[in-house]
């Protein structure tokens, strides 16, 4: 595992090569949180309620800050693999003595850490200023642990989309569909608690909720049973999608066409 840690470490160093770009990209969360604040303040006021389905304006905003952090900091792995196939640089990745999938997992995590830290720092400061402190400090450690599960789960799906570049020429349609599922069924724009019961049931049975909703919800209302449920859900999906990914990878390899000779 030493080599994968070394790959993770180099990616981490690489992500600091342009600190201006790192901060610039993370500034995006500021207008998002301001817009969410306006939107949900008006909605709660219009409903004449302090709390809707267990969430207040404050907890909704903190929920959305964490959900946005997960989304904005996740690496665009599909694009990375697809570009490597298109420009032929995949040749180097495949000619080194490491596992292709673990290599990409290590680089994904390396790319994500500082981006997520900047989003939490900036987004958190903004939300704190708008609505006050997070509801429960115990939420931090539990959410951060499940964020790792969320990224792993995202990796499994994004890598499968990226690998499809071994077979099809353009993967942008798959990326688009995946992103929209994560937006709607993952609870990225609206917490799943605000959905009708039947849609909540469907959304919570799918992996997208374990990637966004569950860690963010745990952050605003932490409890050990909820933590255990989220972790179990994530592990089950990681096991299922991970196996599918390995199978898909082995099949895709035989179809690979490397551009540029």
């Amino acid at each position: 595992m030493k080599k994968y840690f070394a790959i993770f470490r180099v990616t981490l160093i690489n992500s600091l090569a342009y600190p201006g770009e790192l901060i610039g990209r993370s500034l995006m969360i500021l207008p998002f949180m301001w817009i969410f604040h306006q939107l949900w303040s008006v909605t709660f006021a219009a409903a004449g309620a302090q709390e809707i389905n267990g969430l207040t304006v404050r907890s909704t905003l903190w929920y959305l800050m964490l959900a946005e952090t997960i989304e904005l900091s996740r690496p665009r792995l599909g694009n990375t693999i697809s570009e490597a196939v298109k420009d032929g640089s995949i040749a180097y990745i495949l000619s080194k003595p490491y596992d292709f999938l673990l290599y990409h997992y290590s680089t994904s995590l390396g790319e994500t850490i500082f981006r997520a830290a900047m989003n939490i720092l900036l987004g958190g400061a903004m939300v704190w200023w708008l609505v006050g402190a997070p509801p429960n400090p115990f939420g931090w450690p539990l959410a951060l642990l499940t964020i790792l599960g969320a990224w792993t789960l995202n990796f499994c799906i994004a890598a499968m989309i990226g690998l499809s570049a071994f077979i099809v020429e353009d993967i942008s349609a798959f990326q688009w569909i995946y992103q929209k599922f994560a937006f709607i069924l993952g609870g990225l724009l609206i917490p799943l608690d605000f959905y009708p019961a039947w849609l909540q049931t469907i959304a919570k049975a799918l992996p997208f909720s374990a990637m966004v909703y569950s860690p963010a919800r745990l952050f605003v209302e932490p409890s050990l049973p909820a933590f255990a449920t989220t972790l179990a859900m994530q592990l089950a999906w990681i096991a299922a999608l991970g196996l599918l990914l390995v199978y898909f990878y082995r099949r895709s390899l035989a179809h690979l066409t490397v551009n540029g000779g």
Binding site: N14, A17, D87, A91, Y92, S95, G260
Partner: peptide, 19 residues
């Protein structure tokens, strides 16, 4: 095999570009 061979694909870099 990868442990026993070295490769250079002249048109693509294997060195990390920003480091």
């Amino acid at each position: 095999l990868a442990f026993q061979i070295g490769t250079v694909f002249g048109q693509r870099p294997q060195l990390w570009y920003h480091l």
